[in-house]
Design a protein around this nucleic acid. Sequence first.
DNA 1: AATGAATGAGGATTCATTCAT
DNA 2: TATGAATGAATCCTCATTCAT
Lengths: 211, 211, 211, 211
Amino acid sequence: MGVKERKKRNAQKMRQRILKAAMDIFAKEGYEGVSMRRIADKIEYSPGTIYRYFESKCDIMLQLCYHGFERLLGLQFELDKITNPVERIKVEGRYYVTFALENPELYELMFATREIIKQPADAEESVARKSFGKFAEHVQQCIDAGFFSGGDPETLAVALWAALHGLSSLLIKDQLRFLPEERVGEVVERALAFNLRGAGKELAFTGSEFR
Amino acid sequence: MGVKERKKRNAQKMRQRILKAAMDIFAKEGYEGVSMRRIADKIEYSPGTIYRYFESKCDIMLQLCYHGFERLLGLQFELDKITNPVERIKVEGRYYVTFALENPELYELMFATREIIKQPADAEESVARKSFGKFAEHVQQCIDAGFFSGGDPETLAVALWAALHGLSSLLIKDQLRFLPEERVGEVVERALAFNLRGAGKELAFTGSEFR
Amino acid sequence: MGVKERKKRNAQKMRQRILKAAMDIFAKEGYEGVSMRRIADKIEYSPGTIYRYFESKCDIMLQLCYHGFERLLGLQFELDKITNPVERIKVEGRYYVTFALENPELYELMFATREIIKQPADAEESVARKSFGKFAEHVQQCIDAGFFSGGDPETLAVALWAALHGLSSLLIKDQLRFLPEERVGEVVERALAFNLRGAGKELAFTGSEFR
Amino acid sequence: MGVKERKKRNAQKMRQRILKAAMDIFAKEGYEGVSMRRIADKIEYSPGTIYRYFESKCDIMLQLCYHGFERLLGLQFELDKITNPVERIKVEGRYYVTFALENPELYELMFATREIIKQPADAEESVARKSFGKFAEHVQQCIDAGFFSGGDPETLAVALWAALHGLSSLLIKDQLRFLPEERVGEVVERALAFNLRGAGKELAFTGSEFR
DNA sequence: AATGAATGAGGATTCATTCAT
DNA sequence: TATGAATGAATCCTCATTCAT
């Protein structure tokens, strides 16, 4: 019994080591940079060993994806400390875009995952939806407080989410490079009524939480 | 003299064959699926031959990108027929999202630029900016007509563009699948005051125009 | 524990097989003739396998180079048996030129270094310099014995080395073919006061020591 | 008749253009850098055209080789202006090594040509031998003037030639890099009794004589 | 549980050369 | 005489994955 549990714990540790290694490489060198070989080298195990803990490279990338959403969700839960719902949703937007900009590869993975996710569609869905659910909750609280007058809450939440995502994507891909930097803030304000100015670097995500 | 022209035409045809083959593969299997070898197999030529017509794989993908933007731009120019600026911008939004949904891989390619284009950034930029420029023009005309009161026109255009892009991306990646399909329209309306309902399949882009 | 050692031995054997194959091809067809594919074909493994044992083609050629210098160095150490320094240096010269003639491709590789080695220059340098160092030592001993009067020992050693190398190169490339063969000996004597006549085939190097 | 001659002249011009282009590329980028395609691009003809004037790439490289020797021979003929035979042979040595250092790729080609030359061995031989013959003549004149006492003149000439070549080769390949630069002069003096100091850059060879 | 050797297919390019026009 | 399209084989190298040990 105790033996079984120890084994399980060890296995869990190993999974974390693998994921951390994968994330490190991924954050630094993007999707193309990640290979089973390199992960194996990094954790100082043989390539074959990885397959004891993960079905495939695809599986690993999927887990990274989950972690991304969990991390995002973690940020969202922190927001509950903020009592003013409008203030909160503003900060949430700031967090969202900043998270995307600080973890561009991961962010892309999270939303570019179609191919990766295809097979186990349901599983991943839940975590992405949890994140959206929290966001929707916060939107609802704004509505309850009299903002965002009218309309269906979920509809509104989705619309705002789409706006945040579009902005993040364009910024990540540097598609707004033709705008003077100081104008970016204005655009954001206009689009989302969020003020991104002053967003810090405190959200960078390098895989350290796997340690 | 006729000889030269015939040769030119043949070369042009060959370029189209290559682009079409690349597009076919790309549409079905994504960026990773496209390889010079596979293109060569598809057109039943040797790999080396492709290099007569295109400098590199990157060049080919870039051309695909151009075609995408030109195609989008073509749609935008058609819109000039619509005289009511508000009606026009609504249709433009519908076109935009529909285009994205009908040509998801291509759409991603167009905006996944960063890695592909890096060096000859200016070239591609111009075509992307042309498209944006047209959009901004139409936004301006709405402003002139008294809509979208206040604020800088370019700022507004960018904000709207970001919203359209975000929505398109989420839809492409099927991230809004948790919404009943009939709700999607509402979201769009809310986000953009555009009504996407009824957008047909008439914008599908499968590479047939290379034929 | 025995397992590890066995594996190590097998790996070493594999490296030898690869080097031997490379050497065989190289000796027959020169540098251009060597390719990873051909080596792989020869040892009946897949090309990728070679990369388990060697970093790159460059690495393989480098190892061949090392082997050449080590082999030459081996010959030089044998010379210590000869007590008369003048007799010794004469034999050394004979060995040197004979080695070059018997292993022409290898010899060229050893001195064609520039392109092949560029980066890890120091490593290779050491083995080439070891060989030269030994030669210089022997020259010094001649000087100590009263021959080669005057001048800096290293300077003299380099000068003699250059002469040996020039002669070897010309002979390898068959640039002295216009000389009746029996005259070659005279030239050598004149140039180096060495008598090359009678140098046998005992230094031939065909890669058999990798077996 | 006149027509035939004109054609011949034109053909000759074309050959020169091709050789010049090949030499330009070769001097800048070495043997690997030369390709039929690149030559064709440079002269603004199609690759196929080159084959009207030269049998193969190998043939072209061979011609380059010839030109190298002719150029060297040209330098040697200039030396006849110098009346003091000892002074002359010293300058000749300086010229020789300088020529090698200024045209390293060409020099290597000239002496590394075994593979290239194989087929038409006799042809190339003559030009290399002409160069050597001139050198031997100058050596003879030194002997006649009382220098280089004793021994067969040709033997001596070959020996000196070998020394020059060895030194040149080692210098080209940077194999004497472990020597402080100022020591190189000493080595040369010791080996050849030639003083290379002050050798200028006036021998650089870039193919301009094909113009 | 872990190894690590091996695969086989595939990646983008480049090349000398040929040949119908 | 010249073209230029096409070939086909070659280049080095990388990869996810498997499996006997």
